[in-house]
Computed example of a mutant assay.
Amino acid sequence: MVLGWEEARQAAYDASAPLPPVTVPAADALGLHLAAPLVAADDLPRFDNAAMDGYAVSGPGPWRLVGRTLAGQPGAGVALGAGEAWEVATGAQLPPGTRSVLPVEDAVRDGDGVKGEIDDGRNVRLRGEEAMPGERLVAAGARVTPQVLALAAAVGVAELRVVPAPRVVALVTGDELGDAPGRVRDAIGPALPGWVAWAGGALAGISPLPDGAAGLRAALIGTDADLLLVTGSSSVGPEDHLRPLLAELGAHPVVDGVCCRPGSLAGLWRLADDRLVVALPGNPFAALVSFVTVAAPALAGLRGSGLTPLATVTADLPRHRTDTRLIPVRTADTGLVALGHDRSAMLRGVAQADALAVVPAEGGSALLQPLPT
């Protein structure tokens, strides 16, 4: 069914349930989304330790120095008594009985004697003060950032339960593609790895296909992927076989055309085995518009991410008489600047753009659609 631009974007997202979760080494989870909360396996910190280089002290000063521990060394085997001090480095395990750590810059040392002013409890990191075993630290659904990986490592978590990156295979159709006279250089294939990575997918391959129903039908049936991107073959010409083949295969149409320019031929279907098929027009700017309209939201749903909210802007931009228009724009001090070169086969405008302005035909504010980076 043909939908408005915002409707198509939402429908593509809603049709894509998160993939079954997997457990992976924490280092392999970067950029994925948690399918289960991050739960502490150990105390953080693991032991009482010094927040400063200096002297662990017990009771009021002056103190008598009775030992020394550097970071990474075993802690003292005896407790500090009143009036005693223990030299420590930042992060070093504190001896039992420590009341405070006197920073080295605030200490006056004379042989085994140490003097200084200190408030009770200062510069001491207590065991478990940030996290305790079994405590939920990051909620399910959160994206695994480098900071989440750092926290997981600090609390002794070596594996994470995540929604995997959707596997994507691209089928690039068209006898017209090539460098020979009369052929058109393929501009979409080189962009696909970046588009898919930006949208959170894992591109498993790009397969060029000649025009013809037989090869495309075999690829639709036999390709192992969560989402198939088909470039070209999406219109109504004699070599445009995608829509008839999907109907023959009993695919359910989620989006079958979008009221936007360019990109009106964008589509999304669900096959009987739950694989998704996205139609991208063969013209490169139209293909990019279609990708951000239906493919990126579908991938967001598959990987368990939220649909990216779009900023609303007021700008004097050209409109189409009946359909939503997507225009490459650059932000400037004076507002949004339309860059031109925005026909379906063009790339010059979007190559210089910061975003796409989504301009409704009926007037009103525009939306800003981020571009793959």
Score class of each variant (00 low, 15 high):
A202V: 07
A202L: 15
A202K: 12
L203V: 01
L203R: 07
A204H: 01
G205C: 07
G205Q: 11
I206R: 15
I206C: 13
P208D: 06
L209V: 07
L209R: 03
L209W: 04
P210D: 03
P210F: 06
G212H: 00
G212D: 00
G212K: 01
A213P: 13
A213G: 12
A213Y: 11
A214H: 09
A214G: 07
G215L: 10
G215R: 13
L216G: 05
L216T: 03
R217K: 15
R217L: 14
R217Q: 14
A218M: 09
A219H: 06
L220M: 12
G222V: 11
G222Y: 09
G222C: 12
T223E: 11
T223F: 11
D224P: 08
D226F: 04
D226Q: 12
L227M: 13
L228G: 04
L229Q: 05
L229M: 05
T231G: 09
T231K: 06
S233A: 15
S233M: 09
S234A: 10
S234C: 11
S235A: 15
V236A: 14
G237A: 02
P238F: 00
E239F: 15
D240M: 04
D240G: 05
D240K: 05
D240S: 08
H241W: 09
R243Y: 01
P244T: 01
L245N: 02
L249D: 03
G250D: 05
G250F: 11
G250H: 08
G250Y: 07
A251Y: 08
A251T: 11
A251C: 14
P253G: 09
P253W: 13
V255M: 01
D256M: 11
D256P: 07
G257V: 04
V258A: 06
V258N: 08
V258F: 05
C259R: 15
R261I: 15
P262G: 04
P262H: 07
P262W: 07
G263C: 10
S264K: 13
L265C: 12
A266N: 13
A266I: 07
G267Y: 00
L268N: 15
L268T: 14
R270P: 00
R270E: 03
L271Q: 15
L271P: 13
A272T: 14
A272Y: 10
D274G: 00
L276N: 13
V277W: 09
A279T: 07
A279I: 09
A279F: 07
P281V: 02
G282D: 04
N283C: 12
F285E: 01
F285I: 02
A286T: 05
A286P: 04
L288M: 10
V289G: 03
S290F: 00
S290M: 00
S290L: 00
F291M: 08
F291C: 08
V292K: 04
V292P: 02
T293D: 00
V294H: 06
V294R: 05
A295P: 06
P297V: 12
P297M: 14
P297W: 12
A298R: 12
L299K: 06
A300N: 06
A300F: 06
A300E: 14
G301F: 08
G301R: 12
G301L: 10
L302C: 04
R303P: 13
R303N: 15
G304C: 00
L307V: 02
T308I: 11
L310A: 03
A311P: 01
A311H: 03
V313T: 11
T314L: 08
A315H: 10
L317Q: 06
L317Y: 08
L317G: 05
P318G: 01
P318K: 00
R319H: 08
R319C: 07
